[in-house]
Design a protein around this nucleic acid. Sequence first.
DNA 1: AGTCTATCCTGCCGGC
DNA 2: TGCCGGCAGGATAGAC
Length: 280
Amino acid sequence: MPELPEVETTMRLVRPLVVGRTIQRVECTWPRTVEGDVKAFARAVQGQRITQAWRRAKWIVLDLEGPARAARHMLVHLRMTGRLVVEPTRQAAPAWWKVGLHLDDGHTLWFLDVRKFGRVLARSASIPEFADLGPEPLSSTFDGAWLHTSLQARRRAMKPLLLDQTFLAGLGNIYVDESLHAVGLHPLTNSARVSLQQAQELALVIKRVLAEAIEREGSSFDSFYRTPEGNPGSYQAQFQVYGRDGQACRRCGTTIKKLVVGQRGTHVCPRCQPLRQKRN
DNA sequence: AGTCTATCCTGCCGGC
DNA sequence: TGCCGGCAGGATAGAC
């Protein structure tokens, strides 16, 4: 469930169940899921109380409080197939679990991950992972003026640029395709050729698409991304282009095409999103 | 600087 | 029916 809306939804689902709880014991079935040494990680988080849960980009952060030299934050990145669920400890461990944090209220916070790309890590006061991240799309620092200036500073295809977390933090393949279609920009458009008006429109669209997706608790269209106890998410019903190749564009009726841009499957309406060839 | 390839992994789907 | 290649919502390192 890996883009901003899905990460936000996961964080909101888990937050009330873990904040205030103390981590008593850590288990792990796949050492590579935990950054560094699993034992060191366990020592850093065991005995710590979770005081807050929040999100930055596609990271979920649990703030920790406890022994002076232990970690201050625990970070989770879901990558492609990571999930977090909280269940009674005495219940059987869920399929595909990689890390289990047994809490002091008889529940366990499980990190599940079919493809094993996800990561769990402990950090002291500073979080170097956040140093190079771009702005949060839903924050006020991200607006049309900022976007236009930043696009002008680069000469890069729009799609890979919007996927670049150091440029803008939180978008992934689906929401980039949806946002570009909504403003009629082709994914290969050179960023320096985007007008101020287009940038302003795009900033608004990105905010709207993400906010609506969060409202609908993200999108899930296969069983991997469904939480057993939570809602599956329903934003996929709103998709205009993603996964709709071969079908008619809802706006103009033209057949949606799928191409590859920056090694990622990319969905585009050839009529709504024309690619203007550059002329010198 | 930007783009591409390979890599980390498993499951599922479509085609033969 | 069964096998197999290709593909997947992410991100990185290293080569051109």
